[in-house]
Amino acid sequence: MCIAMPAEVLEIKDGNIGVVDFGDLKQEVRLDLVDVSVGEFVLVHVGFAIQRLSREEGLETREVFRQVHAAMMEE
């Protein structure tokens, strides 16, 4: 289960509400479960951020795959 989508935090309101961007789509999400700052990436599930992602990994998934694969192959 558990569809979750990465999004960039654009703004934080009232402590636990974040305005995030899923990719040309801004939405409010709840930040109760993470400590996060504007500009960071989060993983969002059922309207809640459930984890912080590093900015680079949020932006460049393809590159991440490449690196992980490369690292693994080197082992």
Binding site: I3, M5, F22, G23, D24, L25, Q27, V44
Partner: peptide, 13 residues
Amino acid sequence: FRKSVQSAAGMLG
């Protein structure tokens, strides 16, 4: 696809 539509479709499942 429009990116916003893809994002929303992802959110909505």
